[in-house]
Design a protein around this nucleic acid. Structure first.
Lengths: 248, 248
DNA sequence: AATACTTTGTTCGCTACCGGACATAAAGGC
DNA sequence: GCCTTTATGTCCGGTAGCGAACAAAGTATT
Protein backbone atom coordinates (compact mmCIF):
# COMPACT_ATOMS: atom_id res chain seq x y z
CA UNK A 1 0.00 0.00 0.00
CA UNK A 2 1.26 3.43 -0.93
CA UNK A 3 2.37 5.68 1.91
CA UNK A 4 0.17 8.56 2.95
CA UNK A 5 1.42 12.03 2.30
CA UNK A 6 1.13 13.41 5.80
CA UNK A 7 4.28 15.39 5.27
CA UNK A 8 3.78 16.49 1.68
CA UNK A 9 3.80 20.23 1.05
CA UNK A 10 0.40 21.62 0.23
CA UNK A 11 1.79 22.93 -3.01
CA UNK A 12 2.27 19.33 -4.14
CA UNK A 13 -1.32 18.48 -3.35
CA UNK A 14 -2.43 21.61 -5.14
CA UNK A 15 -1.02 20.32 -8.40
CA UNK A 16 -4.43 18.78 -8.61
CA UNK A 17 -6.44 21.91 -9.13
CA UNK A 18 -9.50 20.64 -7.35
CA UNK A 19 -7.46 20.07 -4.20
CA UNK A 20 -5.72 23.36 -4.88
CA UNK A 21 -9.02 25.17 -4.75
CA UNK A 22 -9.69 24.04 -1.20
CA UNK A 23 -8.81 26.27 1.71
CA UNK A 24 -5.53 25.66 3.47
CA UNK A 25 -7.35 24.50 6.56
CA UNK A 26 -9.41 21.94 4.70
CA UNK A 27 -6.46 20.71 2.74
CA UNK A 28 -4.46 20.23 5.93
CA UNK A 29 -7.25 18.19 7.41
CA UNK A 30 -7.57 16.10 4.31
CA UNK A 31 -3.86 15.54 3.91
CA UNK A 32 -3.47 12.59 6.28
CA UNK A 33 -6.05 10.69 4.28
CA UNK A 34 -4.40 11.26 0.94
CA UNK A 35 -1.99 8.82 -0.63
CA UNK A 36 0.27 9.54 -3.51
CA UNK A 37 -0.07 7.03 -6.32
CA UNK A 38 1.34 6.24 -9.72
CA UNK A 39 -1.06 6.00 -12.61
CA UNK A 40 0.34 3.58 -15.15
CA UNK A 41 -0.71 3.68 -18.78
CA UNK A 42 -3.72 1.47 -19.36
CA UNK A 43 -4.44 1.09 -15.66
CA UNK A 44 -8.10 0.58 -14.97
CA UNK A 45 -9.21 3.01 -12.28
CA UNK A 46 -12.59 1.36 -12.17
CA UNK A 47 -14.58 -1.12 -14.15
CA UNK A 48 -18.18 -1.00 -15.23
CA UNK A 49 -20.38 -1.81 -12.27
CA UNK A 50 -17.41 -2.35 -10.00
CA UNK A 51 -17.20 -0.93 -6.54
CA UNK A 52 -14.36 1.53 -6.08
CA UNK A 53 -12.40 1.78 -2.88
CA UNK A 54 -10.76 5.09 -3.76
CA UNK A 55 -11.42 8.42 -5.38
CA UNK A 56 -8.48 9.63 -7.48
CA UNK A 57 -7.19 13.15 -7.95
CA UNK A 58 -4.87 13.15 -10.99
CA UNK A 59 -1.97 15.56 -10.99
CA UNK A 60 -0.12 14.90 -14.22
CA UNK A 61 -1.99 12.02 -15.83
CA UNK A 62 -5.10 11.78 -17.94
CA UNK A 63 -7.93 9.37 -17.27
CA UNK A 64 -10.60 8.56 -19.83
CA UNK A 65 -14.11 7.68 -18.85
CA UNK A 66 -15.33 5.34 -21.50
CA UNK A 67 -18.11 2.99 -22.25
CA UNK A 68 -17.62 -0.35 -23.92
CA UNK A 69 -20.53 -1.82 -25.85
CA UNK A 70 -21.42 -5.49 -25.89
CA UNK A 71 -19.90 -5.88 -29.33
CA UNK A 72 -16.60 -4.44 -28.14
CA UNK A 73 -16.99 -1.00 -29.69
CA UNK A 74 -16.19 1.82 -27.32
CA UNK A 75 -16.54 5.53 -26.89
CA UNK A 76 -15.05 8.07 -24.57
CA UNK A 77 -17.60 9.91 -22.53
CA UNK A 78 -15.32 12.38 -20.81
CA UNK A 79 -11.72 12.94 -19.87
CA UNK A 80 -10.27 13.84 -16.49
CA UNK A 81 -6.91 15.39 -15.68
CA UNK A 82 -5.42 17.58 -12.99
CA UNK A 83 -8.51 19.76 -13.06
CA UNK A 84 -10.71 17.01 -11.69
CA UNK A 85 -11.31 13.74 -9.95
CA UNK A 86 -12.21 10.19 -10.88
CA UNK A 87 -15.06 8.56 -9.02
CA UNK A 88 -17.96 10.96 -8.71
CA UNK A 89 -20.40 8.10 -8.25
CA UNK A 90 -18.97 7.61 -4.76
CA UNK A 91 -20.30 10.86 -3.42
CA UNK A 92 -23.27 11.03 -5.77
CA UNK A 93 -24.58 8.01 -3.95
CA UNK A 94 -24.66 5.40 -6.67
CA UNK A 95 -21.41 3.70 -5.65
CA UNK A 96 -20.88 2.39 -9.18
CA UNK A 97 -21.42 3.45 -12.79
CA UNK A 98 -21.86 1.46 -15.98
CA UNK A 99 -18.67 2.93 -17.48
CA UNK A 100 -14.95 2.30 -17.19
CA UNK A 101 -12.10 4.63 -16.31
CA UNK A 102 -8.72 3.99 -17.89
CA UNK A 103 -5.44 5.84 -17.63
CA UNK A 104 -4.82 7.25 -21.05
CA UNK A 105 -1.64 9.13 -20.27
CA UNK A 106 0.61 7.86 -17.50
CA UNK A 107 1.55 9.99 -14.52
CA UNK A 108 0.62 10.41 -10.89
CA UNK A 109 -2.16 11.45 -8.62
CA UNK A 110 -3.48 11.33 -5.11
CA UNK A 111 -6.15 9.05 -3.85
CA UNK A 112 -8.38 8.94 -0.83
CA UNK A 113 -10.53 6.18 0.57
CA UNK A 114 -14.04 6.47 -0.71
CA UNK A 115 -15.52 6.32 2.78
CA UNK A 116 -13.27 9.15 3.99
CA UNK A 117 -14.19 11.43 1.14
CA UNK A 118 -17.85 10.62 1.43
CA UNK A 119 -17.82 11.42 5.11
CA UNK A 120 -16.12 14.73 4.43
CA UNK A 121 -18.52 15.46 1.58
CA UNK A 122 -21.46 15.00 3.93
CA UNK A 123 -20.10 17.18 6.68
CA UNK A 124 -18.19 19.93 4.92
CA UNK A 125 -20.00 22.33 2.65
CA UNK A 126 -16.83 23.68 1.14
CA UNK A 127 -15.82 20.24 -0.08
CA UNK A 128 -19.35 19.42 -1.11
CA UNK A 129 -19.82 22.56 -3.16
CA UNK A 130 -16.54 22.11 -4.93
CA UNK A 131 -17.17 18.48 -5.83
CA UNK A 132 -20.68 19.22 -7.04
CA UNK A 133 -19.51 22.07 -9.21
CA UNK A 134 -16.91 19.79 -10.68
CA UNK A 135 -19.58 17.21 -11.33
CA UNK A 136 -21.61 19.76 -13.19
CA UNK A 137 -18.62 20.60 -15.34
CA UNK A 138 -18.23 16.91 -16.08
CA UNK A 139 -21.89 16.72 -17.02
CA UNK A 140 -21.34 19.50 -19.52
CA UNK A 141 -18.45 17.60 -21.03
CA UNK A 142 -20.56 14.46 -21.35
CA UNK A 143 -23.46 16.32 -22.90
CA UNK A 144 -21.22 18.04 -25.37
CA UNK A 145 -19.63 14.73 -26.28
CA UNK A 146 -23.10 13.43 -27.10
CA UNK A 147 -23.80 16.38 -29.37
CA UNK A 148 -20.36 16.25 -30.96
CA UNK A 149 -20.73 12.54 -31.70
CA UNK A 150 -23.95 13.27 -33.48
CA UNK A 151 -22.99 16.24 -35.62
CA UNK A 152 -19.27 16.66 -36.11
CA UNK A 153 -16.71 15.01 -38.32
CA UNK A 154 -13.83 12.84 -37.21
CA UNK A 155 -11.48 15.66 -38.21
CA UNK A 156 -13.14 18.07 -35.84
CA UNK A 157 -13.39 15.53 -33.08
CA UNK A 158 -9.73 14.70 -33.32
CA UNK A 159 -8.93 18.39 -32.85
CA UNK A 160 -11.22 18.51 -29.87
CA UNK A 161 -9.63 15.45 -28.38
CA UNK A 162 -6.12 16.80 -28.87
CA UNK A 163 -7.02 20.12 -27.31
CA UNK A 164 -8.68 18.48 -24.33
CA UNK A 165 -5.53 16.40 -23.85
CA UNK A 166 -3.23 19.38 -24.26
CA UNK A 167 -5.10 21.29 -21.59
CA UNK A 168 -4.43 18.46 -19.18
CA UNK A 169 -0.76 17.95 -19.96
CA UNK A 170 2.26 20.07 -19.22
CA UNK A 171 3.99 19.29 -22.49
CA UNK A 172 2.72 19.58 -26.04
CA UNK A 173 3.57 15.95 -26.63
CA UNK A 174 0.67 13.53 -26.50
CA UNK A 175 1.82 9.92 -26.12
CA UNK A 176 -0.90 7.99 -27.86
CA UNK A 177 -1.19 5.67 -30.84
CA UNK A 178 -3.78 6.31 -33.50
CA UNK A 179 -5.33 2.99 -32.62
CA UNK A 180 -6.00 4.14 -29.05
CA UNK A 181 -7.27 7.52 -30.14
CA UNK A 182 -9.67 5.70 -32.43
CA UNK A 183 -10.95 3.70 -29.44
CA UNK A 184 -11.52 6.91 -27.54
CA UNK A 185 -13.34 8.63 -30.35
CA UNK A 186 -15.24 5.48 -31.17
CA UNK A 187 -14.15 5.44 -34.81
CA UNK A 188 -11.89 3.25 -36.94
CA UNK A 189 -8.18 3.61 -36.73
CA UNK A 190 -8.08 4.42 -40.42
CA UNK A 191 -10.28 7.41 -39.81
CA UNK A 192 -7.81 8.75 -37.30
CA UNK A 193 -4.92 8.06 -39.65
CA UNK A 194 -6.61 10.09 -42.31
CA UNK A 195 -7.59 12.97 -40.06
CA UNK A 196 -4.16 13.07 -38.44
CA UNK A 197 -2.58 12.97 -41.89
CA UNK A 198 -4.39 16.15 -42.84
CA UNK A 199 -3.32 17.89 -39.65
CA UNK A 200 0.27 16.86 -40.23
CA UNK A 201 0.20 17.91 -43.87
CA UNK A 202 -0.92 21.35 -42.72
CA UNK A 203 1.83 21.53 -40.13
CA UNK A 204 -0.42 21.56 -37.10
CA UNK A 205 0.97 18.40 -35.58
CA UNK A 206 3.85 16.03 -36.09
CA UNK A 207 3.61 12.46 -35.08
CA UNK A 208 5.51 9.24 -35.13
CA UNK A 209 4.58 5.92 -33.67
CA UNK A 210 2.60 6.85 -30.65
CA UNK A 211 3.85 10.37 -30.14
CA UNK A 212 1.93 13.36 -31.34
CA UNK A 213 3.64 16.70 -31.00
CA UNK A 214 1.38 19.69 -31.36
CA UNK A 215 3.15 22.38 -33.35
CA UNK A 216 0.36 24.86 -33.82
CA UNK A 217 -2.22 24.95 -31.10
CA UNK A 218 -3.93 27.99 -32.57
CA UNK A 219 -4.32 26.06 -35.80
CA UNK A 220 -6.15 23.28 -33.96
CA UNK A 221 -8.38 25.82 -32.29
CA UNK A 222 -9.25 27.24 -35.68
CA UNK A 223 -10.40 23.84 -36.91
CA UNK A 224 -12.11 22.43 -33.86
CA UNK A 225 -15.87 22.47 -33.53
CA UNK A 226 -17.58 24.73 -31.05
CA UNK A 227 -17.85 21.86 -28.57
CA UNK A 228 -14.35 22.41 -27.28
CA UNK A 229 -14.94 26.04 -26.39
CA UNK A 230 -18.30 25.32 -24.79
CA UNK A 231 -16.74 22.77 -22.46
CA UNK A 232 -13.69 24.86 -21.67
CA UNK A 233 -15.73 27.96 -20.92
CA UNK A 234 -17.95 25.97 -18.63
CA UNK A 235 -15.02 24.48 -16.74
CA UNK A 236 -13.51 27.93 -16.28
CA UNK A 237 -16.80 29.30 -15.09
CA UNK A 238 -17.55 26.51 -12.65
CA UNK A 239 -14.02 25.96 -11.40
CA UNK A 240 -12.18 29.26 -11.42
CA UNK A 241 -8.50 28.83 -10.69
CA UNK A 242 -7.44 30.39 -7.45
CA UNK A 243 -4.33 32.55 -7.25
CA UNK A 244 -1.58 30.21 -6.22
CA UNK A 245 -1.46 29.60 -2.49
CA UNK A 246 1.90 29.19 -0.80
CA UNK A 247 2.46 26.05 1.23
CA UNK A 248 2.09 26.16 4.98
CA UNK B 1 -48.65 33.20 -10.36
CA UNK B 2 -49.91 29.71 -9.78
CA UNK B 3 -51.40 28.91 -6.39
CA UNK B 4 -49.38 26.87 -3.97
CA UNK B 5 -50.62 23.43 -3.16
CA UNK B 6 -50.71 23.74 0.59
CA UNK B 7 -53.84 21.65 0.65
CA UNK B 8 -53.00 19.11 -2.02
CA UNK B 9 -53.03 15.48 -0.96
CA UNK B 10 -49.61 13.93 -0.74
CA UNK B 11 -50.69 11.30 -3.22
CA UNK B 12 -50.96 14.05 -5.83
CA UNK B 13 -47.45 15.23 -5.13
CA UNK B 14 -46.25 11.66 -5.24
CA UNK B 15 -47.29 11.37 -8.86
CA UNK B 16 -43.83 12.75 -9.37
CA UNK B 17 -41.85 9.75 -8.26
CA UNK B 18 -38.97 11.74 -6.90
CA UNK B 19 -41.31 13.57 -4.55
CA UNK B 20 -43.04 10.27 -3.91
CA UNK B 21 -39.81 8.78 -2.65
CA UNK B 22 -39.49 11.36 0.09
CA UNK B 23 -40.71 10.60 3.58
CA UNK B 24 -44.13 11.84 4.53
CA UNK B 25 -42.62 14.29 6.99
CA UNK B 26 -40.32 15.84 4.41
CA UNK B 27 -43.03 16.02 1.82
CA UNK B 28 -45.33 17.76 4.25
CA UNK B 29 -42.67 20.33 4.99
CA UNK B 30 -41.97 20.87 1.34
CA UNK B 31 -45.62 21.11 0.34
CA UNK B 32 -46.19 24.79 1.15
CA UNK B 33 -43.35 25.69 -1.21
CA UNK B 34 -44.66 23.66 -4.13
CA UNK B 35 -46.84 25.11 -6.83
CA UNK B 36 -48.82 23.15 -9.33
CA UNK B 37 -48.12 24.21 -12.90
CA UNK B 38 -49.15 23.40 -16.43
CA UNK B 39 -46.44 22.41 -18.86
CA UNK B 40 -47.53 23.45 -22.33
CA UNK B 41 -46.12 21.80 -25.43
CA UNK B 42 -43.02 23.61 -26.59
CA UNK B 43 -42.67 25.59 -23.37
CA UNK B 44 -39.09 26.42 -22.60
CA UNK B 45 -38.32 25.44 -19.03
CA UNK B 46 -34.93 27.05 -19.29
CA UNK B 47 -32.69 28.48 -21.96
CA UNK B 48 -28.99 27.97 -22.49
CA UNK B 49 -27.09 30.04 -19.96
CA UNK B 50 -30.27 31.45 -18.48
CA UNK B 51 -30.88 31.65 -14.78
CA UNK B 52 -33.82 29.60 -13.58
CA UNK B 53 -36.10 30.73 -10.82
CA UNK B 54 -37.71 27.31 -10.35
CA UNK B 55 -36.96 23.64 -10.28
CA UNK B 56 -39.70 21.56 -11.93
CA UNK B 57 -41.03 18.14 -10.96
CA UNK B 58 -43.02 16.78 -13.91
CA UNK B 59 -45.96 14.54 -13.16
CA UNK B 60 -47.44 13.68 -16.53
CA UNK B 61 -45.34 15.61 -19.03
CA UNK B 62 -42.02 14.98 -20.70
CA UNK B 63 -39.22 17.50 -20.85
CA UNK B 64 -36.28 17.19 -23.22
CA UNK B 65 -32.87 18.49 -22.36
CA UNK B 66 -31.32 19.47 -25.62
CA UNK B 67 -28.41 21.31 -27.01
CA UNK B 68 -28.65 23.59 -30.02
CA UNK B 69 -25.53 24.15 -32.08
CA UNK B 70 -24.55 27.45 -33.61
CA UNK B 71 -25.71 26.28 -37.01
CA UNK B 72 -29.14 25.43 -35.66
CA UNK B 73 -28.68 21.67 -35.52
CA UNK B 74 -29.78 20.14 -32.28
CA UNK B 75 -29.57 16.99 -30.24
CA UNK B 76 -31.35 15.66 -27.22
CA UNK B 77 -29.07 14.95 -24.31
CA UNK B 78 -31.58 13.44 -21.93
CA UNK B 79 -35.26 13.25 -21.22
CA UNK B 80 -37.09 13.88 -17.97
CA UNK B 81 -40.53 12.76 -16.92
CA UNK B 82 -42.36 11.92 -13.72
CA UNK B 83 -39.32 10.01 -12.50
CA UNK B 84 -37.20 13.14 -12.23
CA UNK B 85 -36.72 16.86 -12.05
CA UNK B 86 -35.65 19.65 -14.34
CA UNK B 87 -32.97 22.02 -13.10
CA UNK B 88 -30.19 20.05 -11.47
CA UNK B 89 -27.73 22.90 -12.04
CA UNK B 90 -29.50 24.81 -9.29
CA UNK B 91 -28.39 22.50 -6.54
CA UNK B 92 -25.22 21.40 -8.26
CA UNK B 93 -23.99 24.93 -7.82
CA UNK B 94 -23.59 26.10 -11.37
CA UNK B 95 -26.89 27.98 -11.53
CA UNK B 96 -27.01 27.62 -15.32
CA UNK B 97 -26.13 25.12 -18.03
CA UNK B 98 -25.32 25.53 -21.70
CA UNK B 99 -28.36 23.49 -22.74
CA UNK B 100 -32.09 24.06 -23.12
CA UNK B 101 -35.06 22.29 -21.61
CA UNK B 102 -38.25 22.10 -23.67
CA UNK B 103 -41.59 20.48 -22.96
CA UNK B 104 -41.89 17.68 -25.47
CA UNK B 105 -45.16 16.27 -24.28
CA UNK B 106 -47.65 18.56 -22.60
CA UNK B 107 -48.94 17.92 -19.11
CA UNK B 108 -48.40 19.15 -15.59
CA UNK B 109 -45.92 19.29 -12.81
CA UNK B 110 -44.95 20.94 -9.59
CA UNK B 111 -42.39 23.62 -9.17
CA UNK B 112 -40.49 25.08 -6.29
CA UNK B 113 -38.44 28.23 -6.01
CA UNK B 114 -34.80 27.49 -6.66
CA UNK B 115 -33.69 29.17 -3.46
CA UNK B 116 -36.12 27.11 -1.40
CA UNK B 117 -34.95 23.84 -2.83
CA UNK B 118 -31.33 24.77 -2.55
CA UNK B 119 -31.76 25.66 1.09
CA UNK B 120 -33.46 22.35 1.73
CA UNK B 121 -30.79 20.51 -0.23
CA UNK B 122 -28.10 22.01 1.98
CA UNK B 123 -29.79 21.22 5.25
CA UNK B 124 -31.56 17.92 4.65
CA UNK B 125 -29.59 14.83 3.86
CA UNK B 126 -32.62 12.88 2.76
CA UNK B 127 -33.39 15.42 0.06
CA UNK B 128 -29.77 15.78 -0.84
CA UNK B 129 -29.18 12.08 -1.25
CA UNK B 130 -32.23 11.64 -3.38
CA UNK B 131 -31.42 14.52 -5.70
CA UNK B 132 -27.85 13.41 -6.10
CA UNK B 133 -28.84 9.88 -6.91
CA UNK B 134 -31.22 11.22 -9.49
CA UNK B 135 -28.43 13.33 -10.91
CA UNK B 136 -26.28 10.27 -11.27
CA UNK B 137 -29.05 8.50 -13.13
CA UNK B 138 -29.27 11.50 -15.43
CA UNK B 139 -25.53 11.34 -15.98
CA UNK B 140 -25.89 7.74 -17.05
CA UNK B 141 -28.56 8.72 -19.52
CA UNK B 142 -26.35 11.46 -20.97
CA UNK B 143 -23.35 9.18 -21.25
CA UNK B 144 -25.36 6.51 -22.93
CA UNK B 145 -26.76 9.05 -25.35
CA UNK B 146 -23.21 9.94 -26.31
CA UNK B 147 -22.34 6.31 -26.97
CA UNK B 148 -25.59 5.66 -28.80
CA UNK B 149 -25.07 8.68 -31.05
CA UNK B 150 -21.70 7.32 -32.00
CA UNK B 151 -22.51 3.70 -32.69
CA UNK B 152 -26.15 3.03 -33.34
CA UNK B 153 -28.44 3.48 -36.29
CA UNK B 154 -31.37 5.84 -36.56
CA UNK B 155 -33.66 2.82 -36.46
CA UNK B 156 -32.31 1.72 -33.12
CA UNK B 157 -32.30 5.21 -31.72
CA UNK B 158 -35.89 5.75 -32.68
CA UNK B 159 -36.81 2.62 -30.74
CA UNK B 160 -34.83 3.86 -27.78
CA UNK B 161 -36.52 7.23 -27.95
CA UNK B 162 -39.98 5.71 -28.17
CA UNK B 163 -39.34 3.43 -25.23
CA UNK B 164 -37.95 6.25 -23.11
CA UNK B 165 -41.08 8.24 -23.91
CA UNK B 166 -43.40 5.32 -23.21
CA UNK B 167 -41.86 4.83 -19.80
CA UNK B 168 -42.73 8.40 -18.95
CA UNK B 169 -46.27 8.43 -20.25
CA UNK B 170 -49.40 6.77 -18.95
CA UNK B 171 -50.76 5.97 -22.39
CA UNK B 172 -49.14 4.20 -25.31
CA UNK B 173 -49.84 7.18 -27.53
CA UNK B 174 -46.90 9.49 -28.14
CA UNK B 175 -48.01 12.89 -29.50
CA UNK B 176 -45.07 13.93 -31.60
CA UNK B 177 -44.42 14.73 -35.24
CA UNK B 178 -41.60 13.06 -37.09
CA UNK B 179 -40.08 16.48 -37.60
CA UNK B 180 -39.80 17.02 -33.85
CA UNK B 181 -38.50 13.54 -33.21
CA UNK B 182 -35.84 14.25 -35.81
CA UNK B 183 -34.82 17.37 -33.89
CA UNK B 184 -34.52 15.33 -30.73
CA UNK B 185 -32.46 12.61 -32.31
CA UNK B 186 -30.40 15.14 -34.22
CA UNK B 187 -31.14 13.55 -37.59
CA UNK B 188 -33.13 14.54 -40.68
CA UNK B 189 -36.85 14.21 -40.72
CA UNK B 190 -36.58 11.88 -43.69
CA UNK B 191 -34.52 9.53 -41.63
CA UNK B 192 -37.27 9.33 -39.04
CA UNK B 193 -39.91 8.85 -41.73
CA UNK B 194 -37.99 5.90 -43.06
CA UNK B 195 -37.30 4.33 -39.68
CA UNK B 196 -40.88 4.87 -38.54
CA UNK B 197 -42.11 3.41 -41.82
CA UNK B 198 -40.27 0.19 -41.12
CA UNK B 199 -41.70 -0.02 -37.62
CA UNK B 200 -45.18 0.56 -38.94
CA UNK B 201 -44.77 -1.95 -41.74
CA UNK B 202 -43.84 -4.52 -39.12
CA UNK B 203 -46.84 -3.64 -37.01
CA UNK B 204 -44.91 -2.31 -34.04
CA UNK B 205 -46.38 1.16 -34.20
CA UNK B 206 -49.15 2.97 -35.97
CA UNK B 207 -48.95 6.65 -36.57
CA UNK B 208 -50.80 9.47 -38.20
CA UNK B 209 -49.95 13.13 -38.22
CA UNK B 210 -48.26 13.63 -34.94
CA UNK B 211 -49.66 10.66 -33.07
CA UNK B 212 -47.67 7.52 -32.68
CA UNK B 213 -49.48 4.62 -31.11
CA UNK B 214 -47.26 1.85 -29.91
CA UNK B 215 -48.86 -1.50 -30.68
CA UNK B 216 -46.10 -3.86 -29.74
CA UNK B 217 -43.83 -2.71 -27.00
CA UNK B 218 -42.03 -6.02 -26.83
CA UNK B 219 -41.26 -5.68 -30.52
CA UNK B 220 -39.58 -2.34 -29.90
CA UNK B 221 -37.58 -3.84 -27.07
CA UNK B 222 -36.40 -6.57 -29.40
CA UNK B 223 -35.05 -4.00 -31.85
CA UNK B 224 -33.64 -1.37 -29.55
CA UNK B 225 -29.94 -1.16 -28.87
CA UNK B 226 -28.55 -2.08 -25.48
CA UNK B 227 -28.47 1.58 -24.48
CA UNK B 228 -32.10 1.57 -23.45
CA UNK B 229 -31.70 -1.30 -21.01
CA UNK B 230 -28.51 0.13 -19.54
CA UNK B 231 -30.24 3.40 -18.73
CA UNK B 232 -33.40 1.79 -17.45
CA UNK B 233 -31.53 -0.61 -15.21
CA UNK B 234 -29.51 2.22 -13.79
CA UNK B 235 -32.59 4.32 -13.07
CA UNK B 236 -34.22 1.38 -11.31
CA UNK B 237 -31.10 0.74 -9.31
CA UNK B 238 -30.55 4.34 -8.24
CA UNK B 239 -34.18 5.29 -7.75
CA UNK B 240 -36.09 2.28 -6.51
CA UNK B 241 -39.80 2.90 -6.43
CA UNK B 242 -41.27 2.88 -2.98
CA UNK B 243 -44.44 0.98 -2.18
CA UNK B 244 -47.24 3.44 -2.55
CA UNK B 245 -47.74 5.64 0.48
CA UNK B 246 -51.22 6.73 1.49
CA UNK B 247 -51.83 10.46 1.91
CA UNK B 248 -51.85 11.97 5.38
C1' DA C 1 21.73 -9.22 -38.31
C1' DA C 2 17.64 -11.67 -38.69
C1' DT C 3 13.08 -11.94 -37.05
C1' DA C 4 8.74 -10.81 -35.04
C1' DC C 5 5.75 -7.32 -33.77
C1' DT C 6 3.66 -2.78 -33.69
C1' DT C 7 2.27 1.27 -35.89
C1' DT C 8 0.99 3.74 -39.81
C1' DG C 9 -0.42 4.22 -44.82
C1' DT C 10 -3.45 2.92 -48.63
C1' DT C 11 -6.98 0.82 -51.23
C1' DC C 12 -11.80 -1.04 -52.45
C1' DG C 13 -16.51 -1.70 -52.23
C1' DC C 14 -20.40 -0.78 -49.28
C1' DT C 15 -23.96 1.46 -46.38
C1' DA C 16 -26.14 4.98 -43.65
C1' DC C 17 -27.12 9.23 -43.70
C1' DC C 18 -27.16 13.95 -45.67
C1' DG C 19 -29.08 17.87 -48.49
C1' DG C 20 -32.31 19.25 -51.47
C1' DA C 21 -36.39 18.99 -54.22
C1' DC C 22 -40.88 17.72 -54.77
C1' DA C 23 -45.40 14.97 -54.40
C1' DT C 24 -49.09 13.74 -51.76
C1' DA C 25 -52.33 13.74 -47.99
C1' DA C 26 -54.62 15.07 -43.86
C1' DA C 27 -56.28 18.98 -40.68
C1' DG C 28 -57.93 23.42 -39.90
C1' DG C 29 -59.61 28.18 -41.04
C1' DC C 30 -63.18 30.68 -43.10
C1' DG D 1 -67.20 23.79 -49.59
C1' DC D 2 -62.28 25.69 -50.85
C1' DC D 3 -57.65 26.97 -49.62
C1' DT D 4 -53.79 27.16 -46.64
C1' DT D 5 -50.95 24.90 -43.54
C1' DT D 6 -48.84 21.05 -41.66
C1' DA D 7 -47.32 16.33 -41.83
C1' DT D 8 -45.70 12.56 -44.34
C1' DG D 9 -43.80 9.89 -48.43
C1' DT D 10 -40.35 9.47 -52.09
C1' DC D 11 -36.58 10.24 -55.08
C1' DC D 12 -32.01 11.96 -56.41
C1' DG D 13 -26.93 12.40 -56.16
C1' DG D 14 -23.24 13.03 -52.90
C1' DT D 15 -20.23 11.83 -48.95
C1' DA D 16 -18.41 10.34 -44.48
C1' DG D 17 -17.30 6.60 -42.37
C1' DC D 18 -17.31 1.32 -42.13
C1' DG D 19 -15.18 -3.36 -42.79
C1' DA D 20 -11.69 -5.85 -44.60
C1' DA D 21 -7.44 -6.68 -46.54
C1' DC D 22 -2.80 -5.66 -47.26
C1' DA D 23 1.68 -2.96 -47.74
C1' DA D 24 5.30 -0.40 -45.75
C1' DA D 25 7.96 1.48 -42.24
C1' DG D 26 9.56 1.65 -37.48
C1' DT D 27 10.76 -0.81 -33.07
C1' DA D 28 11.90 -4.60 -30.17
C1' DT D 29 13.82 -9.31 -29.43
C1' DT D 30 17.47 -12.36 -29.50
Amino acid sequence: MAPTVAEAPLAALASNKLLGTLSEKTLLELRPSLEHCRMALGMSVYESGGRQAYVYFPTDCIVSLLYVLENGASAEIAVVGCEGLVGISLFMGGETTPSRAVVQSAGHGFRIRASKLKQRFESDHEVQHLLLRYTQALITQMSQTAVCNRHHTVDQQLCRWLLLSLDRLSSSDVAMTQELIANMLGVRREGVTEAAGKLQADGLIEYSRGHIKVQDRAGLEARVCECYAVVKTEYDRLLPSVPWRSAA
